[in-house]
């Protein structure tokens, strides 16, 4: 049972699409380490349009929250490290279930919002 779950997690971990408001923009992300533990992690994001073209020059705000209300959010921005490839250093300030809101403002001023669920961040 447990191993099934692990295999499933690993299979899904490779490159996960997230829910997107604009259907023609695809937001994909990876987190390292995977699964993340409390402490620093790196979030890598790619934005692609419907023609599989990477979208460059976007501004991506990253806001992490615990699923428990009232906890301090973690707010940062992702930097474009290669064309259409964005990275953010993200500090999981404690263990637990997290979700990360991405707000990407494209060069044409369109805003794409997406939510990433990161459950079960270990506290050690």
């Amino acid at each position: 049972m447990k191993t099934c779950f692990l295999v499933l997690c690993l299979a899904m971990a490779a490159c996960r699409p997230s829910e997107v408001a604009h259907s023609d923009v695809r937001v994909e992300w990876e987190i390292a380490p995977d699964p993340p533990a409390a402490g620093m992690a790196t979030l890598t994001i790619t934005l692609t349009d419907s023609t599989e073209q990477r979208l460059t020059g976007a501004e991506i705000e990253v806001q992490g929250n615990m699923t428990h209300p009232g906890m301090q959010p973690v707010i940062t921005t992702a930097r474009e490290v290669a064309p259409g490839l964005y990275k953010a250093a993200f500090d999981f300030t404690m263990g637990g279930d997290w979700f990360i809101l991405l707000r990407s403002t494209l060069t044409d001023k369109r805003v794409v919002e997406s939510t990433i669920d990161i459950p079960g961040v270990r506290s050690e």
């Binding site: 428990h68 404690m94 270990r122």
Partner: peptide
């Protein structure tokens, strides 16, 4: 103890 609030 370190807090770890999760539903899973």
């Amino acid at each position: 103890q370190p807090m770890e609030m999760r539903g899973m």
